[in-house]
């Protein structure tokens, strides 16, 4: 292969890296059930998929606005419980319930987001945490509808053309399809015109405002978008497991979501999936991680912030680039 063809190929790969990446991910998703159809393994990967949907959304908000939300499990709760209540108590079709649940979560997030997003930093983190505590409390107290502490059971699975999405393989295809759509949307968002504005917002709020990015509106839009994705994840959670309980959406779940974002790297869509995978799979690798979940999760967060605050994917990329640069330096030193 001569130099010109090689550089053309490189150029092709580089300019289509996004589409090729998503295609490769789609291929991996498609082929995975042929690699293993062990229900336990698929249960784990399906859980990763569910969390990924919420984490990608939260990461768009945290990565672009530089603000912290410790309350996104509340939106998952709204999605899951409205889906559950409408299908169990009112007998609605799961699809309609999903749409209504997501719309309700969007309205709820807009209602609290407009006043709260004027806050920033620690105050916003605490306020979102407080919202989550209140939602959790409502779920516990309104037991006529939510089933209280013992939870709400008997939520039907989603069905499509007579097929119920209820066994692990079907769930695998369905949930990962949703993840791919969300990822594709997220990756494209940061390359659209408003998305470019959001990237400036991520770097510097004052600069973004000076360049004409509508900062306050952009924050609310991102907040609502992230709440919608969290509600989608919550509703899918309800239809996947058929059972929801308040502790699936407590403040510790919210902090776990935020930990997944930091692990993967703020603003990194691929990192979000990686972060979700690490936290979900961690207990599988060691008994210690299972028994002392909080200790290990908190330790990971602290270590990550001290060593590589930019997140795993970017941290690895920078380490590789640095090693490569050092190797180049060594070679040119040897030549000289």
């Amino acid at each position: 292969m001569d130099g010109l063809t090689r550089s053309r190929w490189l150029h092709f790969f580089w300019s289509h890296r996004l589409g090729l990446g998503v295609l490769a991910a789609a291929g991996a998703v498609l082929l995975f059930p042929w690699y293993t159809d062990n229900p336990y393994t698929l249960g784990l990967t399906n859980r990763i998929a569910l969390m990924s949907v919420a984490v990608v959304g939260l990461n768009l908000f945290m990565g672009c606005t530089g603000q912290i939300s410790l309350g996104h499990a509340a939106f998952m709760a709204v999605g899951a419980y409205i889906s559950g209540i409408l299908t169990v108590h009112a007998g609605w079709s799961p699809w309609l319930a999903l749409v209504v649940a997501v719309a309700a979560a969007a309205g709820f997030s807009l209602a609290i987001g407009v006043p709260l997003l004027r806050l920033s930093g620690h105050a916003l983190a605490m306020a979102t945490l407080a919202c989550n505590v209140v939602v959790h409390h409502v779920l516990l107290q309104e037991d006529r509808w939510t089933g209280g502490p013992s939870g709400l059971a008997g939520i039907p699975p989603l069905t499509a053309a007579g097929w119920a999405v209820d066994d692990p393989v079907r769930l695998h295809f369905f949930l990962w399809f949703v993840v791919l759509v969300v990822m594709f949307g997220g990756l494209n968002l940061v390359r659209s015109l408003p998305g470019r504005g959001l990237m400036v917002l991520a770097a510097d709020e004052v600069c973004a405002a000076c360049l004409g990015v509508p900062v306050a509106r952009a924050k609310v839009v991102l907040w609502t978008l992230s709440a919608v994705l969290a509600a989608v994840a919550g509703s899918l959670f309800a239809h996947t497991y058929g059972f929801v309980s308040p502790d699936s959406f407590g403040i510790f779940v919210s902090t776990d979501l935020a930990i997944m974002v930091v692990l993967g790297g703020m603003g990194s869509v691929w990192g979000s999936v990686l972060g979700a995978a690490v936290i979900v799979l961690l207990p599988e690798f060691s008994e210690l991680a299972e028994a002392y979940k909080e200790f290990v999760h908190g330790g990971l967060l602290v270590a990550m912030l001290l060593v590589a605050p930019q997140g795993m994917i970017r941290g690895i990329r920078q380490a590789v680039a640095l090693a490569w640069w050092r190797a180049q330096q060594g070679r040119s030193d040897a030549a000289a």
Partner: peptide, 23 residues
């Protein structure tokens, strides 16, 4: 001095401490 890192750091230490108390 990055506020985001500091907030998360205190959140992380808080979780670690809670885990240690459980241990």
């Amino acid at each position: 001095d990055h506020p985001l890192v500091l907030v998360f750091l205190t959140v992380g230490i808080s979780i670690v401490l809670r885990g240690a108390i459980q241990m």
